[in-house]
């Protein structure tokens, strides 16, 4: 899988990968345009705006208008990337995304930055935890949650080449960089980042490094973990997940979002129909976030290596 050794993990916000990825996408296809709602630096769309000023559109603090304008541009052949905080887009403009983008099957990309607890001190209003669920239920929409900045860059280029609506979820603060330019990324594919026999841990976003670290430590405890990184929540890679679960018969999901309707919900739906096995879903469970550093918040909401290990031991009985 061409992953970095744990000792070599870097540290960068995955929104940085989006910023550079969008410039790449813009170089590859001159129909790529970018729209932003007064958050150009925060979302890193500023890199594209500087490089291609004639293809950048400032919409002001108006997320509903941002996506309806993008729908109109896509209707005329452009490939619009719209960026804001996930709390506002898709948080505020869900209906416009549904009606004018998804029902029209317009080639618009929704970039939700500052999603999850990694948003830290800004507090609960800005820590978007419901975006995965909101976007996942929309027909024609796909949902991508990259694990680091390197994958975020690849995902950005990939969704530009995918001619339908797409949602890309990004985090604000620095998080471990675990993949390399050689690590594969394809929309709709999940990857076995660490093979194992006892328990399948399915993770995405900033929780994939947590899962890998827990797997290393659990191996010393005699528990052999298979870590599946599933950057695409929709369409979910059922084949990869089911073939793993058929062997391990135990599952943990972990994500930095509401477990209801997110990756955990998605995996549960798959397994309850095709391969019912004991499952523990880790994430935020029906509550809002709060101010604090990302590490304080991850500790408080139980998204830590230690908690994964406890849950693994529990599953092994």
């Amino acid at each position: 899988m061409y992953l970095l050794d744990h000792d070599d993990w870097g540290s960068q916000a995955n929104r940085k990968g989006f910023g550079s990825g969008l410039v790449k996408a813009g170089e590859l296809n001159d129909q790529v345009v970018a729209l932003c709602a007064d958050l150009t630096d925060s979302t890193q769309i500023s890199l594209f705006a500087k490089k291609f000023p004639e293809r950048y559109v400032e919409v002001g603090i108006a997320e509903q208008n941002m996506v309806t304008v993008a729908s109109g541009m896509a209707s005329m052949g452009k490939i619009p990337f719209t960026a804001s905080y996930a709390a506002f887009s898709p948080g505020r403009n869900w209906e416009q995304i549904k009606t004018t983008i998804c029902m029209n099957d317009q080639n618009v990309k929704i970039i939700g930055s500052h999603a999850g607890l990694y948003t830290g001190p800004d507090g609960a209003t800005h820590q978007m935890l419901e975006d995965v669920a909101l976007m996942r239920v929309l027909p024609n929409m796909i949902v991508v949650v990259p694990c680091d900045s390197v994958e975020a860059e690849k995902a950005t280029v990939a969704i530009a080449e995918y001619a339908h609506p797409a949602y890309l979820r990004l985090a604000r603060d620095k998080s471990p960089v675990i993949t390399t330019i050689k690590t594969p990324f394809e929309i709709g594919k999940a990857y076995v980042f660490a093979p194992g026999q006892d328990i399948t841990i399915i993770a995405n976003g900033t929780m994939t490094p947590i899962a890998l670290e827990a797997a290393e430590k659990l191996f010393k405890d005699g528990i052999d973990i298979e870590v599946i990184h599933s950057p695409t929540v929709k369409p979910l890679d059922a084949a990869t997940i089911l073939s793993s679960v058929e062997r391990t018969k135990r599952v943990i999901t972990i994500e930095e979002a509401q477990i209801c309707g997110g990756l955990g919900g998605s995996v549960s739906e798959l397994l309850s129909e095709h391969s019912p096995v004991p499952i523990i879903r880790m994430g935020v469970n029906d509550s809002y976030g709060q101010s604090g550093t990302p590490s304080e918040l991850l500790e408080y909401y139980g998204l830590t290596v230690k908690r994964v290990m406890l849950n693994a031991h529990k599953l092994m009985g």
């Binding site: 309806t68 541009m73 005329m76 052949g77 416009q96 009606t99």
Partner: peptide, 25 residues
Amino acid sequence: LETTSGPLGSGLGQAAGMALTMRMN
């Protein structure tokens, strides 16, 4: 039909996006 509508208030934004694209092109 150029778009799907019914939920109100989103036609003008789409019109603006189309018009802006015409200008770009």
